[in-house]
């Protein structure tokens, strides 16, 4: 399955039985040079829309919301050590967390790639 996007610029992509979560390329560009990332601990659970992580550039701080409810099974320590990676490859190597979804159907309401591209161009 390809990635699904929220209006707040997070994506969720299926990877086996978990979902890979991160911020979109568009969001990474808008933020500017990312200088700091704070990720949740593994084992924590979130409801869809909860504040889950923080991403900061020099002049902006943004909360990252959980695009889907579930439990954190892995956090990407590499982007905490090197936040610049978020600018380089946000939808690839610089994913934020992996979530074990409580209800995969929550993704149905999210945008697909084309819809998100149109949404991002507008905003």
């Amino acid at each position: 399955m390809t990635a699904r996007y929220t209006k707040d610029h997070e994506y969720a992509r299926a990877d086996g039985d978990v979902y890979v979560i991160g911020i979109s390329k568009h969001a990474a560009e808008q933020l500017g040079d990312v200088v700091f990332v704070e990720l949740p601990e593994t084992g924590k659970t979130f409801k869809k829309g909860d504040d889950m992580a923080v991403v900061e550039s020099v002049k902006a701080a943004s909360d990252v919301y959980a695009p889907i409810s579930g439990e954190i099974v892995e956090a990407n320590a590499a982007i905490v050590d090197e936040p610049a990676k978020v600018n380089e490859d946000p939808e690839g190597a610089a994913w934020f967390v992996k979530i074990k979804a409580a209800d995969a159907s929550e993704l149905d309401g999210l945008m697909d790639e084309a819809a998100y591209a149109a949404y991002a161009a507008e905003s």
Binding site: S57, K59, A61
Partner: peptide, 12 residues
């Protein structure tokens, strides 16, 4: 580290 401060973080 100005993102801690009011002029950027505002209510947070």
């Amino acid at each position: 580290l100005s993102t801690r401060e009011q002029h950027i973080r505002r209510d947070k």
